[in-house]
């Protein structure tokens, strides 16, 4: 360290620090690189582990077969169907409301008390723990409306998770649309609604699609909301589109077999579901978001 100080010449005379800032900088740089690589490493290790354990389990019989509660060798067919059925329904419920609210916040909302309240509501709803949403859904659908555990109750409660995220996605996407587009449309005599429908939304669409897909991927793996609304049992028919049937999903089943279940091959089942969920999520996150991102690039490339 002394040699270092001498090397740096007369300027450093008053420098009482033990280690030169340049060394600290290099060490810190190394530390930051390491952190970045650890973050990527943990993710890679998790994904690899789940796929390595689960891929061998994924036979056609497992993916489409009926599940059993007591014998080994059951499949996850009904759970797979329920997962996508509930996901589809919950997106169908949440998109209109969330897009409407997002457009309001981006296009209409001024600085008023009303806007403040709506923003506060959105932020609050986004931080409500999913188990609390689940219990709320249980009070409303299972007990007050007396539906019991049902696909419709699960899907509606799951919408509460999606809505605040989609509101933010819509608002951000709509805000990125350049002002000139709106002004040109309004100057041509279009009404505000016509401008939004014909000009703003089509331009914002690619950004919205990416956000929508990410939200759908997240909703697919949700379980805390669904345990006490859609339940932990499945219909005997497959596929059963009955909205009032109980609808255990893949993620709920994975938790159920590990935490409560008595099936002898529960670890195998959980491995298989894990791989199935991870594959689906990889598809949602990497494959489905590509069109949106490409479209975004194309739009900004040709129009700006």
């Amino acid at each position: 360290m002394n040699a270092e100080a001498i090397d740096r010449g007369p300027v450093i005379m008053k420098d009482k620090r033990l280690i030169s800032p340049k060394v600290i900088d290099q060490v810190a740089n190394l530390g930051l690189w390491l952190s970045g690589l650890i973050i990527l490493g943990i993710l890679a290790a998790f994904l690899t582990y789940i796929l390595y354990k689960g891929l061998p389990v994924l036979t056609w019989d497992f993916i489409t077969g009926m599940s059993t509660d007591t014998r080994a060798g059951g499949g996850v067919g009904p759970q797979l169907f329920n997962s996508f059925y509930i996901l589809f329904l919950s997106m169908a419920f949440s998109i209109p409301v969330a897009v409407g609210a997002g457009i309001y916040l981006a296009e209409y909302a001024g600085r008023s008390k009303l806007t403040d309240i709506i923003r506060l509501s959105t932020e609050s709803l986004a931080t409500v723990p999913s188990i609390v949403l689940g219990l709320f859904g249980m009070i409303i659908f299972v007990n007050t409306l007396g539906l019991g555990f049902s696909i419709i109750g699960g899907a509606l409660t799951l919408s509460l998770l999606n809505i605040p995220v989609l509101v933010r996605v819509t608002e951000e996407a709509v805000r990125t649309v350049p002002h000139q587009y709106r002004e040109a449309s309004l100057a041509l005599g279009a009404t505000k609604w016509q401008t939004i429908w014909r000009v703003v939304l089509p331009t914002a669409l690619p950004g919205m699609i990416t956000g929508l897909t990410l939200t759908a991927g997240r909703a697919l793996g949700e379980s805390a909301i669904l345990i006490f609304t859609a339940g932990t049992t499945v219909s005997r028919q497959l596929p059963d589109p009955n909205l009032l049937a109980a609808g255990e999903t893949l993620a709920v089943h994975m938790w159920y077999v590990m935490a409560v279940g008595l099936v002898p091959d529960r670890v195998e089942i959980a491995n298989g579901i894990g791989a199935l969920l991870v594959i689906t999520i990889l598809i949602f996150n990497l494959v489905f978001t590509i069109p949106g991102r490409l479209l975004q690039r194309k739009l900004s490339g040709t129009k700006n």
Binding site: G36, I39, L40, L43, F46, L47, I50, L214, G217, R218, L220, G221, E222, S223, A224, A251, V252, M254, W255, M258, A270, G274, L277, V278, I281, L282, F284, N285, L286, T289
Partner: peptide
């Protein structure tokens, strides 16, 4: 790293628990 962060969010909590 950006899509990697999104993937972290997307991994279901049961999978983390498992």
């Amino acid at each position: 790293m950006r899509p990697a962060t999104d993937l972290y969010v997307a991994i279901p909590s049961v999978v983390y628990g498992f």
